[in-house]
């Protein structure tokens, strides 16, 4: 009985560590790309890597580690639930915030939209595209 609980804890911890490794890799790559990318509209891609891959995935992994480690005490279920709630919030709000700031930047014409291959939003508004 005790051995089974120990084995399940180890499996859950290993899965959580794999998820945290993926998250750390995505976070570091997003930070490098945020430096290297040349334009605002291309940097939105780096923000998506950083928020979904770098924050949602490690939060789920930390929740799994907290479930599988008994040395944290009874309150580890509280930590796991809080981590899952944070993952859900970032999953919704990261995309919504980046869309809002991109729309405001496009409407206010702060950054020039270049290189421009197709621009359907300008055609819908009534201006000419590229």
């Amino acid at each position: 009985m005790n051995m089974d609980v120990e084995l399940i804890n180890w499996i859950v911890i290993i899965i959580g560590q794999i998820l945290i490794t993926i998250g750390v890799f995505c976070d570091f790559v997003a930070a490098l790309l945020m430096i290297r990318f040349p334009n605002f509209y291309i940097r939105l891609h780096a923000l998506t890597i950083g928020s979904i891959g770098g924050a949602v995935v490690p939060a789920v992994g930390a929740a799994l580690i907290a479930i599988g480690s008994p040395f944290l005490g009874t309150f580890r279920w509280f930590l796991a639930g809080g981590a899952l709630v944070v993952a859900l919030f970032i999953f919704i709000l990261g995309g919504a915030g980046s869309h809002a700031i991109a729309r405001a930047t496009y409407r206010a014409k702060i950054v020039e939209y270049r290189p421009c291959y197709i621009d359907q939003l300008a055609e819908d508004i009534g201006e000419d595209g590229c």
């Binding site: 945290i20 998250g23 976070d27 997003a30 945020m34 605002f40 940097r43 939105l44 780096a46 923000l47 950083g50 928020s51 770098g54 924050a55 949602v56 490690p58 939060a59 930390a62 929740a63 930590l79 809080g82 981590a83 944070v86 970032i90 990261g94 915030g97 980046s98 700031i101 405001a104 930047t105 702060i110 950054v111």
Partner: peptide
């Protein structure tokens, strides 16, 4: 521009939220 700074502090805040859990 101002949009790049908002983008950077956005990513910084979300990653800090995951860092505080760890």
């Amino acid at each position: 521009t101002i949009s790049d700074m908002v983008l950077a502090i956005d990513a910084l805040g979300y990653d800090l939220a995951a860092f505080l859990i760890i």
